[in-house]
Design a binder for these strands. Sequence first.
DNA 1: CAAATTCACTTACTATTTGTAACTAATTAT
DNA 2: ATAATTAGTTACAAATAGTAAGTGAATTTG
Lengths: 110, 110
Amino acid sequence: MEQSELCPRFQKGMDIISKRWTGLIIYQLLSGPQRFCAVQSALPISGRLLSERFKDLQFEGIVDRHVYPEIPVRIEYSLTEKGRALEPVIREIEAWSRNWIEKEEAAEEC
Amino acid sequence: MEQSELCPRFQKGMDIISKRWTGLIIYQLLSGPQRFCAVQSALPISGRLLSERFKDLQFEGIVDRHVYPEIPVRIEYSLTEKGRALEPVIREIEAWSRNWIEKEEAAEEC
DNA sequence: CAAATTCACTTACTATTTGTAACTAATTAT
DNA sequence: ATAATTAGTTACAAATAGTAAGTGAATTTG
């Protein structure tokens, strides 16, 4: 029952993108740096989870958190180079969804 | 706080591949139809979860289950056309992992 | 100037999902 | 007869996700 030759880097990569919300968060940030509340209102995710995911993604070097010490402080999240390198993954998922997910199928979830 | 224009098909697609284990199961089946125990010994997944995931993936039309009524019955799982269409997604994740995940990073997980 | 709102979170609690282990039933090999 | 393999299922504990409310600093509204 010992598992085999699965490349550990591939396994790690798969772990990252197959964690709930990471794909959608990265998708959101592909349109440019955004604030916490902007991402939150773009996705059906709670503050608790978004905060947790941002921490995970920062730890993985996929997202950058930048504090602008302005009149009221402004905090922006953006993709690092490593994060932007995930764009082709996201685009392939987009393409697959467009081609293979029925409108009805998608609707029954909402 | 109402969430916006996220395409529901993209959301559904993301839901599917961002569910734990689905990516690795599909990756395994890309090398051809396989039996339950073959997939199980290729991945660090338990029988309970694999059984559950196979059911989900059949329901989504991504995996086919075929029973060969032989001397001892043989059951094989394979990708449908919809499932095989996910190959580019998997390949992009592979490429990203190869380029952006450090050996050490991956190792510290195991 | 007091009250409400916004931003970026955190805390507390519940529900759902995972993981672990053991069990089943049919067949087959030793 | 005993042990092993296949394709699961059941029972239960641990981890993760979801919901709701709270926090504290600053800012706008009445």
